[in-house]
């Protein structure tokens, strides 16, 4: 395979005719064997550098932008940070987010009574995270999802909400468009946020067992 220049910017890949040696099959076949044997030997003596990942004993750690399963963050007092503004469900191209808003009787603040994501519809594009004005929805690096009945595919507040001050490190796609100091926790900005004194019973109580994605250590 060699090149000849036709004119500036254009090269022609020449087809070299087969030599007598090539016609004998053997040189090319042996040459090919040498290439594969070289790979084999190289791999044999460098087992640690094998590209193969022995899932599930060894797990691939994706970058901190990985778009995996969603979570909803909480404020320090344990209430969900989501204010049910419907931005995420508006921005979602798959229309997989269902929100039902409720109103806090005391603070007159909106909060989600029902927040459901149909994981099977979701295309993991990250638009909901981009659209959230409250730092409330993040995507994690959790890709191990397999559902055995379709009814379980709709995850609600109970599965989505994580406890307050949840570490940002192991999470994936997060609100970008300009860097912001996160103080190491999700939803840690807290600027101008009204604090509610206690979680209401409509909010799913923070359940430390729910999020087990963790650091994939």
């Amino acid at each position: 395979m060699h090149l000849t220049r036709v004119r500036p910017g254009v090269v022609k890949v020449e087809r070299t005719p087969l030599t007598v040696l090539d016609r004998l099959y053997l040189p090319a076949v042996i040459g090919g064997m040498l290439v594969t044997i070289r790979h084999l030997l190289h791999n044999l003596f460098n087992l640690k550098q094998l590209p193969t990942i022995s899932y599930p004993e060894v797990k691939r750690v994706y970058s901190e932008r990985f778009r995996g399963r969603h979570i909803l963050t909480s404020r320090e007092d344990g209430t969900t940070r989501c204010v049910a503004c419907y931005m995420c469900s508006t921005a979602c191209p798959a229309e997989c987010i269902t929100i039902q808003a409720g109103e806090d009787e005391r603070t007159r603040e909106k909060f989600p009574v029902r927040y459901e994501i149909d994981l099977l519809r979701c295309v993991f594009c990250g638009y909901c995270v981009d659209a959230c004005p409250e730092d409330a929805i993040y995507m994690t690096r959790d890709y191990e999802m397999a559902i055995d009945t379709r009814a379980r595919s709709v995850v609600g507040l109970r599965d989505l909400v994580v406890p307050p001050n949840f570490p940002v490190g192991p999470m994936g796609w997060r609100p970008y468009y300009g860097a912001i100091d996160k103080h190491g926790t999700a939803g840690g900005t807290g600027v101008g946020q009204q604090l509610r004194s206690a979680p209401f019973e409509d909010d799913a109580p923070p359940n430390p067992d729910v999020f087990r994605g963790g650091d994939a250590q």
Binding site: M1, D22, R23, A28, G31, G32, V35, T36, H39
Partner: peptide
């Protein structure tokens, strides 16, 4: 280059 070596002069 490996792929080229494997196939480019290979009569098969």
């Amino acid at each position: 280059n490996d792929v080229e070596k494997l196939v480019d002069r290979n009569k098969i």
